[in-house]
Amino acid sequence: EALLLQRRRVTVRKADAGGLGISIKGGRENKMPILISKIFKGLAADQTEALFVGDAILSVNGEDLSSATHDEAVQVLKKTGKEVVLEVKYMKD
């Protein structure tokens, strides 16, 4: 459990079709971090076996998301290339 509370760096390699394969919720306007709300089976994020629903995305390719709005986070995630480095931390409810 202590492991979950540490920052983790996960590299996601996207397939030619399909994006990261995650849905996010939260954002500055909700006074919440950007959280992974869904991981789609078989897509890139799922294949890492290292990302979990409830993980907060702290940064994407080094771009800090700690004070991002939901829309800003969506845009940052959309413009990523084939390889995406996510810094995440599991957030307890």
Rank of each mutant, 00 (worst) to 15 (best):
I39V: 08
S37H: 11
R8N: 01
D93C: 07
L58E: 07
A68P: 00
E1A: 07
G54R: 01
V76F: 08
D55Q: 02
E72C: 05
S23N: 13
A17Y: 12
L58A: 03
G27R: 04
E49T: 11
K89N: 07
V60Y: 02
V85D: 15
R7H: 09
I34F: 00
E87S: 05
V10M: 04
G27Y: 00
G26M: 03
G18W: 08
K38A: 12
V88P: 01
I39M: 05
M91I: 08
L86F: 08
A15D: 14
K89W: 07
N61C: 05
D46P: 05
G19D: 06
A56Q: 12
K38E: 14
K89S: 12
V60R: 00
T48W: 01
Q47L: 14
G21F: 04
I57G: 01
T11C: 15
L51P: 04
R8D: 01
D93K: 05
F40G: 12
S66I: 07
G42C: 07
D55H: 01
L20M: 10
R13V: 15
M91R: 06
G18I: 10
L51G: 03
G62V: 04
T11K: 10
S23V: 10
I22T: 02
E87K: 04
N61S: 05
L4Q: 10
G18L: 12
H70I: 14
M91E: 08
K92V: 11
E1P: 06
S59A: 12
V53C: 07
L20Q: 04
D55F: 00
V60P: 01
I57V: 08
D93S: 10
D64P: 08
S67T: 15
G62H: 06
N61V: 01
L43S: 10
V88F: 01
L20R: 00
L43F: 07
K14W: 08
E49H: 13
R9H: 13
D64F: 03
M91N: 09
A45S: 07
I34Q: 00
K38V: 06
K38P: 01
G27Q: 00
V10K: 02
L3M: 11
R13Y: 11
S59Q: 09
V53E: 10
E1V: 06
G18E: 10
T69H: 04
T69E: 05
T69M: 05
D93Q: 12
L3Q: 09
L3T: 05
R13K: 14
A50S: 14
L3K: 10
M91H: 09
T69F: 06
T69Y: 06
L20W: 06
G62P: 00
I39Y: 02
H70F: 14
F40R: 14
S37V: 08
A45Q: 04
K92P: 15
D93F: 09
R7S: 10
D16H: 13
N61H: 03
S67C: 10
T69V: 03
L3I: 11
R9G: 04
K25F: 13
G42D: 06
G62M: 03
Q47C: 12
A68M: 15
V74A: 10
L51R: 02
Q47P: 06
N61D: 13
A50N: 14
I34W: 00
I39D: 03
E87W: 06
T11E: 09
L65D: 00
T11A: 10
A56P: 00
